[in-house]
Design a protein around this nucleic acid. Structure first.
Length: 292
DNA sequence: AAGGGCCTCAACCGCTATAGA
DNA sequence: CTCTATAGCGGTTGAGGCCCT
């Protein structure tokens, strides 16, 4: 099947735009506004395809486009959003004022992708290329419970001493325990806040009944995104040093591919296994100081 | 100085989505 | 409902600049 060309091929100029062409396009758009791209070239005196004019305007000439180097904050935002949305450049661009999808796409392919690789993070999955860096250093067999692995990593990462009851409460989905611990000062505040949020999330995973307004049939993806879009979590998440860890956390919580699903489908978390994991642990185990 | 390789990024291509007739 | 035009998106390309030998 032959596709209808967007414009007549003959006499159409391709390649880099000249300053004169830019001026013609800017002048026309200032007078008439955007739109009518198909007929615009002829009216503006340009020997260009309408699509080429639209792209030139959208990606380069628009007055609100911010040019110049990306800030570290912009870098973090792009990395975070790419982890959540994938190669949805237009969607990512809506969160970065003055940046175009094309610019972000180029920047990702030429800079950020390499940077992540250098940090040992897969730029597609956002998971550590060598995942052993995030595995708990345990001499005994590692249990497959998502919650146990999650909490072990939390503790390892933040090098905090986790109260055994707190841990039990989180894995069993009793966030009240976590709140009590926060109030009693058993763990430092940012960590306990993080753990409380995790607790709420693990409740979502672990139970098919309702909890704190979460419907038992709600899409996990919505709550998952809400969890990671939380400002405080987001701050941790966008710190590049924590990036691999948070991606690992995401992979544990998201049980498989990132698509939507109902809670009951989760194969990741097995509460009984997690509790057995805690019960079987003792101070002689080499757990890099995870639990007290 | 020359030329070869690499990198960047503007521009293009091919496709889908959407609106309107 | 179908068709067509247009807008928008993501992947890819290639010109030009830079660096190294």
């Amino acid at each position: 099947m032959v596709r209808t060309p967007c414009c007549k091929e003959e006499g159409i100029k391709k390649g880099a735009w000249t300053p004169e062409e830019d001026q013609k396009l800017i002048a026309y758009l200032h007078l008439h506004g955007e739109g009518g791209w198909r007929t615009l070239p002829e009216k503006a005196g340009l020997k260009r395809c309408g699509k080429s004019c639209r792209l030139r305007w959208a990606n380069y000439l628009r007055p609100d486009i911010k040019r110049g180097e990306f800030s570290p904050e912009e870098d973090d935002t792009i990395i975070k959003l790419h982890a959540l949305k994938g190669n949805k450049w237009a969607a990512i661009a809506t969160s970065l004022a003055g940046r175009t999808d094309n610019e972000i796409k180029n920047y990702w392919n030429t800079n950020l992708k390499k940077r992540l690789k250098q940090k040992g993070i897969d730029a597609i999955t956002h998971k550590p290329i060598n995942s052993t860096g995030f595995e708990p250093k345990v001499n005994k067999p590692v249990y497959s419970s998502g919650s146990a692995r999650l909490l072990n990593r939390v503790a390892s990462k933040y090098a905090v001493e986790l109260n055994r009851d707190l841990l039990t409460g989180i894995i069993s989905g009793n966030s009240t325990v976590a709140e009590d611990s926060q109030n009693s000062g058993d763990v430092d505040s940012p960590t306990s806040t993080l753990l409380n949020k995790m607790a709420a999330t693990s409740v979502l995973i672990n139970t098919t009944t309702t909890y704190s307004g979460f419907s038992d049939n709600c899409s996990f993806t919505d709550e998952f995104n809400e969890f990671f879009n939380n400002e405080e979590i987001s701050d941790i998440y966008t710190t590049v040093d924590n990036f691999g860890f948070m991606e690992e956390l995401k992979s544990i919580l998201s049980y498989g591919d990132a698509g939507a699903g109902v809670i009951e489908d989760s194969p990741e978390v097995n509460v009984a296994d997690a509790m057995e994991f805690i019960d079987s642990w003792n101070e002689d185990d080499n757990m890099v100081g995870v639990f007290v």
